[in-house]
Amino acid sequence: MPNSPTYPADLLARAAKIRLACFDVDGTLTDGRLYFDSEGRELKAFHVLDGQGLVLLRKTGITVAFVTARNSVVAEKRAAELGVEAHIGVKDKQVRVDEIRARLGLSAEQVCFMGDDLPDRVPMQTAGLAVAPANAHASVLAHAHWRTSARGGEGAARELCDLLLLAQGHDATEVA
């Protein structure tokens, strides 16, 4: 990738092994704010760069999954639009990630988890690559192998996707 950022060798080594990329939704794929219309319907804003990155991962054979505690029709629809797995209303994120991992026959080191707050801490602790957006809560930062420069909902997920693509020898322009 021309003009790609320089990453530490240990981060690239972790990223090269990833076959399952799990993403929290609120605060990671969105800016974390919850919007409701006058009818009580939830609204969320997703960044188009993040969506493109998730599609590129999927095209290279990496399984992508949303793993969120909130029941969200909006997140479910966004996942369907991108062709990624949606695990919505998950009470125990670690149990769900382990179920997905077992179904795919993967080891923990082949799992990446991106999260921003307390419910994401345990799956981040067990993931081969744990990533937090720039604005993640301090409670999870100690468990992150890497912190993006972008904030949640503002391209943070795309930064992770670009790292995974680079570490695995893919050029995004050729994958697209």
Rank of each mutant, 00 (worst) to 15 (best):
E42M: 10
I100M: 11
C22E: 04
A79F: 07
A176G: 12
E81I: 04
Y35F: 15
G153C: 02
D120W: 00
L141E: 05
L165T: 00
A138N: 07
D10Y: 06
E39W: 10
G32D: 06
S72Q: 10
L29M: 15
D171H: 08
Q94E: 15
A127V: 03
A132I: 00
H47L: 11
F23M: 09
V97W: 09
D24V: 07
V175N: 08
L166S: 05
A65Q: 08
E85P: 03
L163W: 02
N71G: 13
K44T: 04
A172N: 06
I18C: 12
D92M: 11
A176W: 12
V74H: 11
E109P: 05
L129Y: 08
D10Q: 12
N135W: 00
S149F: 02
D37Y: 07
A176V: 12
V48D: 13
P119T: 03
A16G: 10
L106R: 08
R147H: 00
D116C: 13
V175P: 02
L163H: 00
Y35R: 14
D120K: 04
A130L: 03
G152V: 04
R147K: 14
E42V: 07
R78S: 12
L106C: 05
G51I: 08
K59L: 12
T60F: 09
A172G: 01
R101Y: 03
M1K: 14
D26R: 06
V90I: 15
S139N: 05
D31P: 07
E99K: 05
W146M: 03
D10N: 12
G61Q: 08
F66A: 08
R103Q: 14
V67Y: 04
F36Y: 15
F23C: 03
A130F: 02
T63S: 12
D31C: 02
A167Y: 00
V73S: 13
R14I: 07
L166Q: 11
G105Q: 11
L163T: 02
D171L: 02
N135Q: 02
A21W: 11
T148Y: 00
R103F: 02
L12V: 05
K93F: 02
G169Q: 05
V90R: 06
V25C: 07
A138Y: 07
A102Q: 15
V48C: 11
V25M: 13
T126V: 14
L34D: 09
H87W: 14
P133S: 02
I18W: 07
R151C: 09
P123K: 02
R19W: 09
A127S: 14
A45N: 12
A69W: 01
L82K: 13
F66G: 06
C161W: 03
F23P: 09
H47Q: 13
Y35C: 11
V175G: 03
F46C: 10
L49Q: 13
L165C: 01
F66Q: 08
N135K: 00
S149R: 11
A157T: 01
D98N: 13
A150R: 14
D50S: 09
H143F: 07
D162A: 01
A86H: 03
L29S: 11
A13G: 04
P2E: 15
A102S: 14
G169C: 04
V48Y: 10
F66Y: 11
G32V: 05
L57Y: 08
K91T: 13
C161A: 15
C22W: 08
L43D: 05
R70Y: 01
G152I: 01
H87E: 15
S149L: 06
R147I: 15
